[in-house]
Amino acid sequence: MRVPVRRLFFCLIIISRAMSGAAKLKSVDYEVFGRVQGVCFRMYTEDEARKLGVVGWVKNTRQGTVAGQVQGPEDKVNSMKVWLSKVGSPSSRIDRTQFSDEKEIHKLEFKGFNTKY
């Protein structure tokens, strides 16, 4: 069976557009400064990450901050960045959040979102 060239060309355009519209995967490291230890910040961070469908990790630092990494579709990573900058846990106080090493990745490096100790 021969497929008309026009139809084949049309199908290739549709496939190309669908593939280019696929969500880009991003990775970003973060550190949150303020009153973020002893206020369940890590637990709420895990919960929010799971709700959004991003992967990565979170941990307390010796400097009294919370640090970690988030990976996932660009829009979801951006939503997590807003949460880490402005929301946090109910008892926390976020003074500032520093993001670094933001980059596009080809595949996720983690299976879920966990707390590191």
Rank of each mutant, 00 (worst) to 15 (best):
W57H: 06
L25F: 12
I94V: 09
V77Q: 11
V3S: 10
R93M: 08
R96W: 12
G56Q: 05
G88H: 05
V3T: 13
W83G: 07
F10L: 13
N60Q: 09
K26H: 10
L12E: 09
T97K: 04
S91Q: 12
P73S: 05
K76Q: 14
P73A: 07
K59W: 03
Q71F: 09
N114V: 15
V66S: 03
L25I: 11
K86I: 01
G68S: 10
F9P: 00
L84E: 08
G53L: 02
M1R: 06
G68Q: 08
W83K: 04
K107I: 00
S89H: 07
V70F: 10
T65H: 01
S89V: 14
L84T: 06
G56M: 04
K116F: 02
G38F: 00
R96D: 15
K26M: 14
L108Y: 02
V54G: 13
S91D: 05
V5R: 07
C40Y: 09
Y44M: 10
S92E: 02
C11A: 13
T97Q: 08
V66N: 02
M80T: 10
K76G: 06
T65P: 00
V66E: 03
F9R: 09
G34F: 01
V87Y: 12
R50L: 01
E109G: 01
A67K: 14
G72N: 05
A49H: 04
A67P: 11
K103S: 15
V54S: 13
K76H: 12
E109C: 01
G64I: 09
K103N: 13
S16D: 01
K24V: 15
S79N: 04
R6N: 11
E74K: 14
C11V: 13
R93Y: 09
L12G: 12
Y117E: 03
V58N: 08
T65A: 01
L52E: 07
G34N: 04
K24N: 15
I15F: 00
L84P: 07
V55W: 02
R7V: 06
R7N: 06
T45P: 09
T61A: 12
K59A: 07
D29G: 02
V77F: 10
I15T: 12
R17I: 09
K107R: 11
F99H: 11
G88N: 05
W83Q: 12
E104P: 01
M43Q: 11
Q63S: 06
N114F: 09
G38E: 05
I105W: 07
R42W: 03
F113W: 03
L8G: 00
K107L: 03
K116D: 01
K86N: 02
K81R: 15
M43E: 14
R96S: 15
T115P: 02
V3W: 13
S100T: 12
S89A: 13
K24R: 14
N60T: 05
Q71G: 10
V3G: 06
K59H: 10
K116L: 04
R35F: 00
P73T: 13
Y30K: 06
I105S: 08
D47S: 14
E104T: 10
N60G: 07
I15D: 00
L8K: 13
C11M: 14
E104V: 14
G64A: 04
H106D: 14
R7Q: 08
